[in-house]
Nucleic acid binder design. Structure first.
Lengths: 203, 203, 203, 203
DNA sequence: TATGAATGAGAGTTCATTCAT
DNA sequence: CATGAATGAACTCTCATTCAT
């Protein structure tokens, strides 16, 4: 035998002791680094284990599949993001849309920078569609909720639309931020933020 | 012999007979399809050859490396795009920025739809950085030139910035267009176009 | 991922368990047999693995390249040879050159017979030149040292020259020994040994 | 290629045969070069054809197999060698063995230098054993004949033995001549020749 | 006959995954 | 649980040889 096909219901085994939890953390951190550097496809289980100071067998004890590591990372990142957005909601509730736009732009950019594997994971083909869809819906919902609390509040329908745009625009911003050979990178990023603010502030 | 050599300088062999030219075209078409479906990494040479109705040896006769077929495709797509932008330039010269924005949005979207491997290729890691940089610079230049011919003309500095944004925004649009599970997809796309037009029309 | 990288610096992975050590030994033995039979180029990794009763993956776990297995074998053989010459040095120190010539002739022939891949490996093109040079220098040094201890001692300069000749002559002898169709093989080998003894005994 | 138009109406077929012979010569020359550089195994038919300025199809028209090219080259080289030895026989007949030894050493060395693929071909595994055996027997016979004509003549039995030794020794000499990293190469070669002369001159 | 395209078996190598200790 | 060895399908690439024009 070999290869894929790992019988349907595999799940990452929950670590039961303190040491296990630390190991899982180390493995996820290593996976983040490797995937950020090389992308999901090029990342190898061996490299991840090595980077975490674990053996390949140990890695498979916690994540029986490469998929599962990606899923776990994606999930974890998604939760961090949701938490971040919740905090942001508290801070900007009742402020005008323009201020909200700026805050979203900054905080989302910061998030993506501190979670460097997120884009690779979110954009990955073959990803478990259901989970992905669910997370996207959740995030869009949170952002739309933020918009609904702005002053003046954005109507629900428009908020839904803007949420999608915000999400993609921030991703674009991070991509651009990574393009080292762009001479006017900073100016472009400023303009991008301006575009978003303008659009969100418009009736 | 055996193995490799990383001889850096390999080039696609140009076909010299009619039959060869047809083969190369079929191979490029197959590569486009496969890469569009699975991405560069997951695309296999075997699949490309099979899809083109060619043997693996035939594929390697013209494209001695997987890299090279990607490069050739990227190059070809880039040239198509440049041609398309040139044509667009003729049509929209002297029109206001808003009209230009719409035209760019439509034509670029159309282009990406008819060249479904372009995004995968342009975003590919490990791509020959020099060639990529060159192509991007060229495209940005063409779009900036379009903006400079608008009425009123966009100043050079701002045109350079907007060119980058346009390019990324259209890519975003195509991505969104592909997200089948988005309920309000059409509305989002309309809003995206509106955002661009608004931003480009602004002083 | 895929493909190669020519990362120049790969090394054989050292086994850490008893089982691994046994595997490596079996693999080296199999490689010796296959290379002796077919030469380095014609020897295939698949055949080596099969002959060792291992899977191809197992072979690559310890020897990530075909080169590396050849290098390891060459190295191991070289060490055996050095050990053998050291032992011979103890036995023949102080004896006349003629006796030394005979001893060298016999022992080196015996060594090559018991290390049937050595000639194929030593003569291989593309071999890591540095390592090869080093080993040759070492062996020449050892033989020259033997000659310097003969009675009467061979002067250093002449010893260096003779060392080279001895090495090549023994290789010739083994080649001749392998030429089954030579009717007077035994007589030729005797004459070869005589030639060497005569030459070494000459002032 | 290109036209040329040289075919005089008188002998339409002559230029074609002429051309064919030239092509064969070019192909063999190219094969010599490639095999000398890379050895028989690593030499590729494509490279040989290219080096000869011919197409791969043309190469196969004259040499339907890689084997056959090697055989033809081997054969041709063997004939050159036989011719050379015949000429040498005329020059040295009646001279003492020592002089003969020197002449053999020099001329054979010269021959191998001017036929750089000969050693690779003669030492090749899998070679057509029959033809090889035949050629060796022939060469040994010629050398033995030379020895029989020396003054004093070498007895037949000893001549047969010496012939084998001479052949191998010269091969060794050429090998040593190619070892660029040997500091005392020249001295070694002189000593090798001295050894042969001494041995041949001995009763 | 010359040319260049076509073919495919087979080689080296990778890597997710499983097993035994 | 940890560790490291074992496995083999799949991949990229090569090259002698054959085919079609």
């Amino acid at each position: 035998m070999s290869s894929q096909m790992s019988s349907a219901a595999a799940k990452p085994r929950a670590p039961q002791r303190e040491r296990g939890r630390a190991r899982v953390a180390a493995l996820l951190a290593a996976a983040t680094a490797v995937i950020a550097e090389s992308g999901y496809e090029a990342a190898t289980m061996t490299e991840i284990a090595a980077r975490a100071g674990a053996s390949i067998g140990s890695l498979y004890q916690f994540f029986p599949t490469k998929e599962l590591i990606a899923d776990a990372l994606h999930q974890e990142n998604g939760e961090d993001l949701a938490r971040m957005l919740a905090g942001l909601g508290v801070r900007v509730a009742g402020k005008p849309s323009a201020a909200l736009a700026d805050a979203l732009f900054d905080d989302l950019s910061g998030f993506l920078n501190s979670h460097p594997a997120f884009i690779a994971l979110a954009g990955r083909r073959n990803i478990d569609a259901k989970r992905k869809k669910q997370m996207r819906r959740l995030l869009r919902g949170q952002i739309a909720a933020l918009l609904a609390q702005a002053d003046p509040p954005v109507p629900a329908k428009r908020a839904d639309i803007l949420a999608v745009i915000v999400l993609h625009l921030i991703q674009t911003a991070v991509t651009i931020a990574g393009e080292v050979d762009l001479p006017n990178r900073a100016a472009v990023l400023d303009d991008l933020r301006l575009m978003l603010r303008r659009h969100m502030a418009a009736a």
